[in-house]
């Protein structure tokens, strides 16, 4: 598996990095981080040009995120409108929109690099709940810049231990994403428990 990725990167260079970066931002399970690591390693070895690897990864990621956002905006938003026809659902939707409006920018920012496996879903949600395009784009570009720099940089710096870096980093990223979802569910459950208690002891 790892060997196939490396061979693909040597044969197709920045093109395959661009394509995988784009597709993985649309939630397709493609090991783009491994591609960027190997891209950085081949830059260190003198086989690929640095600007091509950076441009491929960065361009693919931003175009992919924009596509995810637009799918949410033009596909997800009308669907949610239709589902939320009862007053109760409407209230939930309004609350979700408020959260996104308050914290959405930071959510997009961190989901592009620190919690990268959640990125595509955050893009859909941002588009669906109506996060402004400019705000989305600014945070997204900032985050993707960090993502690309960190991975290509690590590939470059640890070129001779690329397999070790990809194994360890891959696990760390998976762990972070798992913990982020765990934390989010904790917040959700706490809210639900509070609501239950409020119903059990109605206010005077």
């Amino acid at each position: 598996m790892t060997d196939t990725i490396f061979a693909l990167v040597t044969t197709w260079g920045a093109l395959v990095i661009f394509a995988s970066s784009f597709l993985s931002c649309l939630a397709l399970p493609i090991p783009t981080s491994l591609m960027m690591l190997s891209g950085g390693a081949f830059v260190a070895a003198g086989d690929l040009a640095l600007w091509q690897v950076i441009a491929g990864a960065w361009g693919g990621a931003i175009l992919g995120d924009q596509s995810g956002y637009l799918i949410g905006r033009h596909g997800g938003a009308p669907l949610v409108e239709r589902i939320a026809h009862t007053p109760a659902r409407r209230a939930v939707l309004a609350r979700a929109r408020k959260v996104v409006d308050r914290r959405g920018g930071l959510g997009v920012f961190f989901s592009t690099w620190l919690f990268a496996p959640l990125g595509p879903w955050v893009n859909f949600v941002a588009g669906t709940t109506g996060l402004g395009w400019l705000r989305f784009t600014i945070w997204d570009v900032l985050g993707e810049t960090i993502w690309v720099t960190v991975y290509v940089g690590l590939g470059y710096g640890f070129a001779s231990q690329i397999e070790a870096v990809s194994d360890i980093l891959g696990s760390a990223v998976g762990l972070l994403a798992g913990l982020a979802v765990t934390g989010a569910m904790g917040v959700w459950i706490r809210g639900a428990l509070k609501a239950q208690k409020a119903r059990a002891t109605p206010a005077r």
Partner: peptide, 17 residues
């Protein structure tokens, strides 16, 4: 009882972590 969906996702996320 309070949040069945969130509880299932919580279990999954803990397993993944």
């Amino acid at each position: 009882q309070a949040a069945p969906v969130a509880t299932v996702i919580l279990g999954g996320a803990l397993a993944v972590s």
